[in-house]
Each structure stands twice: as structure tokens, then as C-alpha cells.
């Protein structure tokens, strides 16, 4: 875990995933910028862990089944 609260190995593994998905679309010279953005995104994700939730806390947007009968 780094000082910023994010797991460096997780950043690397997700960056590798991004490269696997989009590598052909990314100029090799831009990979550093993309990696930095992955790290920034991971910082947001890590900050969510500061909130403790019960399992009854469901996602706010609940899927509503379609029904033509109303």
C-alpha cells in the first residue's frame, strides 16, 4: 500500500488490463499518461473504502423491470 492509500500492485494490474483492452489504440508514447490516469481513478476507488456499508445498503439506482401492464 502506498502513502496515497492505493495498492501499487492493483494499479499495475489494472493498467495491464487497460493495455490489453486498448493497446492497439494507444500510442506507446502516451502509455505513461494513461497509467497516471489509471492511478488517479484508483485513488477515487480507494477513497470509497473509507465508508462502511451494511449489506442492506443497495445501489441507489435500482433496476425497474419493464412492464407494459404498468
Amino acid at each position: 500500500m502506498s502513502d496515497s492509500g492505493i495498492d501499487a500492485r492493483e494499479v499495475e494490474s489494472r493498467f495491464e488490463m487497460v493495455k490489453a483492452l486498448y493497446g492497439p489504440l494507444i500510442d506507446p508514447g502516451d502509455l505513461g499518461t494513461v497509467r497516471n490516469r489509471v492511478e488517479t481513478a484508483m485513488r477515487s476507488v480507494a477513497a470509497l473504502d473509507s465508508v462502511e456499508l451494511d449489506l442492506v445498503a443497495e445501489p441507489f439506482s435500482v433496476f425497474v423491470p419493464e412492464s407494459s401492464e404498468g
Binding site: R14, F15, V18, L21, Y22, V34, R37, A41, V45, L48
Partner: peptide, 14 residues
């Protein structure tokens, strides 16, 4: 032009 790719690092659980 670069902003899209890193978004894939956010997983469904996140």
C-alpha cells in the same frame, strides 16, 4: 484523445 482508456480500470464492484 487519451481520456477514455483509463476508465476501464474501474471495475463493476467499484
Amino acid at each position: 484523445r487519451l481520456g477514455h482508456f483509463s476508465k476501464a480500470a474501474v471495475l463493476a464492484k467499484d
